[in-house]
Design a protein around this nucleic acid. Structure first.
Length: 260
DNA sequence: AGGACGCCCTGTTCGC
DNA sequence: TGCGAACAGGGCGTCC
């Protein structure tokens, strides 16, 4: 699931549940998810501390503690957060759990175990270490156009490249390209400034709407691609059958009629 | 550089 | 119906 809108939703969920509580214990069931630290190291950094703020960059969520470091959460292909009240059983596939002084817990759930958990001195440190590009929602139009000028390949690969633009994955790149009526393999170099301006504005609108809909494709407007992005789905614009191709190593859904 | 691939994981869906 | 193969919304390393 987790692309930028999902992670932004998790960030707000984190704020609403975990902020300002005393961290009593941590439970790490899958130490392989840790980057550059151990369960003991994580425990030393978090135990007795409080989360005081959060940030998001692309698909990464950062939670600041009052101990001069930040917890980094990345959700891979299947991660999510769940606030589990005292007495409720732990959700299936919980890999990491933060228990607070009131015995409620924030559970990190990841059936496919493809996410990562780390500690860093600052979000900026992590962004630089992973050479992430500008956040897809925070970027201004001028920088967006500058990023495009550096690219020679296809547009879907560009939108999904976290080093160029952070936050957009397979689903939302499909949505943006559908709304722009562009084929996923359109060469970025063939786009003019007017095209790029339109893509920029569509990207902002799509991401904002997705966040508003809690990143649930089923809640998106009927005019969007995502609610119809499945076998047998019809284009909400021309009513033709949607199809898919392989592009940038993923399954790219599109309307063959509307997107050339 | 960018695209194609394999791999990391495991639950679900597909096809014979 | 049953079972193995293919696939799923991410990201990294390698090769061409």
């Amino acid at each position: 699931m987790p692309e930028l809108p999902d992670v932004e939703y998790y960030r707000r969920y984190f704020n609403a549940t975990a902020l300002r509580q005393r961290i009593a214990h941590i439970h790490m069931h899958e130490p392989r998810l840790l980057e550059a630290t151990s369960p003991q190291g994580l425990g030393r950094a978090l135990k007795g501390r409080h989360f005081v703020s959060t940030q998001r960059h692309g698909k990464y969520l950062f939670a600041e503690t009052d101990g001069d470091n930040w917890l980094v959460l990345h959700f891979g292909m299947s991660g999510e957060l769940h606030y589990t009240k005292n007495g409720e059983s732990e959700p299936e596939h919980t890999q990491f759990s933060i228990e607070f002084g009131n015995f409620h817990r924030l559970d990190y759930i990841a059936p496919r175990k493809l996410g990562h958990i780390a500690l860093v001195k600052s979000p900026q440190y992590c962004i630089e270490a992973k050479t992430l590009g500008p956040d897809a929602l925070a970027i201004d139009e001028e920088t967006f156009v500058e990023q495009a000028a550096k690219r020679r390949g296809g547009i879907k690969a560009w939108l999904m490249d976290q080093h160029s633009l952070a936050g957009i994955g397979n689903l939302y790149s499909d949505e943006i390209l559908f709304q722009c009526r562009l084929h996923p393999r359109t060469a970025v170099a063939d786009l003019d400034d007017k095209d790029l301006s339109r893509i920029y504005r569509t990207t902002q609108r799509v991401l904002e709407k997705a966040i508003e809909c809690k990143a649930d494709p089923a809640q998106l407007p009927e005019s969007f691609l995502l609610p119809h992005r499945h076998t047998g789905g019809l284009c909400p614009r021309c009513n033709g059958a949607l199809g898919y191709i392989d592009s940038a190593g993923r399954t790219a859904w599109l309307c063959p009629g509307c997107q050339g």
